[in-house]
Design a protein around this nucleic acid. Sequence first.
DNA 1: CTTGACTCTCACATCGATGTGAGACTTTAC
DNA 2: GTAAAGTCTCACATCGATGTGAGAGTCAAG
Lengths: 125, 125
Amino acid sequence: MRIGELSRRTGIPVRMLRYYEERGLLTPERAPSGYRRYAEADVDRATLVSSLIRSGLPTRLILPLLRDPYGPVAGGTPGDEGGEMVALFTAELARLDDRIACMSLSRDAVRRHLRLRRARARAER
Amino acid sequence: MRIGELSRRTGIPVRMLRYYEERGLLTPERAPSGYRRYAEADVDRATLVSSLIRSGLPTRLILPLLRDPYGPVAGGTPGDEGGEMVALFTAELARLDDRIACMSLSRDAVRRHLRLRRARARAER
DNA sequence: CTTGACTCTCACATCGATGTGAGACTTTAC
DNA sequence: GTAAAGTCTCACATCGATGTGAGAGTCAAG
């Protein structure tokens, strides 16, 4: 499928799909015309990438994370001394846990606030 | 207390504490010298602000959210037709829920990946 | 008083994620 | 074949959160 359809099906702006490619996270074939041709599997992949990015994962971590399930890293990315990457991902995991906790708090705060506003709105009627 | 101490006690960079003030989220007194003087309560407040911001809440929503518990909005902020704010906060709540879900997924992905890497590292020994 | 640590303001730099517009080519529908 | 819609690349713009440095004043300890 072409980029427009993928965009429609994933809800991800065309601009971002191209951006993912620039980052090496999505690597569509090219038609002779130069148009990108995405595989069916890219629907899921793009969605995952989008999720990861929206979660604040740096794209340079997303790549190894994605590549992995599709074949072991076989000696590792150049410059990747196993331990280093493990440390990076561990840190990222901590960051995620932290942020999730923090967002849960925020959500509660917003929820509380919303209830307050609604109550007030009701009272004013 | 002065800004440095608040920074130490909250872990928030001095720069950010000033930024919060610029955004109207924290409004310390000023000593005659011009130095900011923070109240004890600002430790909590700054922490909350930091959480909210890290959660991606736009600062313009944080202000009304914070002000509220400290005295009802009394007619509302100028230009705030209740309903509008409620809509904004509702949208924000949805966004938060969405992001939390999305980050949970990401966390699981990272966790899985981390286990994989560790297993591989063990295998190589 | 002097010095070192703090603080002030201001302004510019950066960084990642996005938007946007220009100019040119491709595909599709008629 | 023509027009409309889609796509391409490139490059510049924006936006929020931060960093950073300059130049000047303040505070506390000796």
